[in-house]
Design a protein around this nucleic acid. Structure first.
Lengths: 105, 105
DNA sequence: CAAGTATATGTCCGATCCGACATAGTCGTC
DNA sequence: GACGACTATGTCGGATCGGACATATACTTG
């Protein structure tokens, strides 16, 4: 968010910050959430790059469209285990998974 | 294992391979196990480097010595979530976690 | 706008996970 | 070899996860 918009919102009575501030996460919790989000984004990238639907991809993994949607959304009910297993199941390498975790925004 | 030893064992009627062969894991499953083992080793490194016992470290994390032992052993009852959360809780960064996953043996 | 296709959200329940406790094994010191 | 400190293993009950289903929302096409 640019500074202008931030100022305007705060001028209008809004408090502006990141998820860490808003949800009052500890730094570790924030890092964990970021890590999950990075994996979720990567999962979507892998799927979209192949031109697959969520339903198709879920079937490949022996899962359901709804759960796969939650994976891509980094839903609270989705574990890092599931994200990593799914990525590996779609052909991503351990190296790629590590890179995504290490370097993602 | 060097080739000599491998030959001797196989000559004696042993089949020699890695965990993947022995347990008949798929490549994805093998990669997932390796990933867990890498995190478990890193967790032990972090603890030992600080000169802490398992009990001390577990207490810091709000867990128990027995569970922490299982973490370091990459026990089947330990999730990647728990390993990652524990590492972050001990001060490791997301970048370090990613590097360990990407580059570990 | 109806129908079709894709994605998102809420809920259920069986499966798995995790902290805790008990106890067993390991190692060094006396 | 008894003791103490540390680590490993087995088990249990409560908590969380995950596949499935139902349903909602969003977009496209005729």
């Amino acid at each position: 968010m640019d500074q202008n918009k931030k100022d305007r919102l705060e001028g209008a009575g809004w408090r502006v910050g990141n998820a860490e501030d808003f949800l009052e996460l500890t730094p570790e919790e924030a890092a964990f959430v970021e890590l999950k989000l990075a994996l979720a984004r990567f999962l979507r990238d892998v799927r979209v790059r192949q031109g697959w639907t969520q339903a198709q991809t879920a079937k490949r993994l022996g899962s359901s469209q709804s759960r796969f949607a939650k994976m891509e959304a980094a839903d609270a009910s989705v574990s890092v285990d599931l994200l990593v297993k799914s990525l590996l199941g779609l052909g991503a390498t351990r190296e790629q998974v590590g890179e995504v975790i290490a370097r993602a925004a």
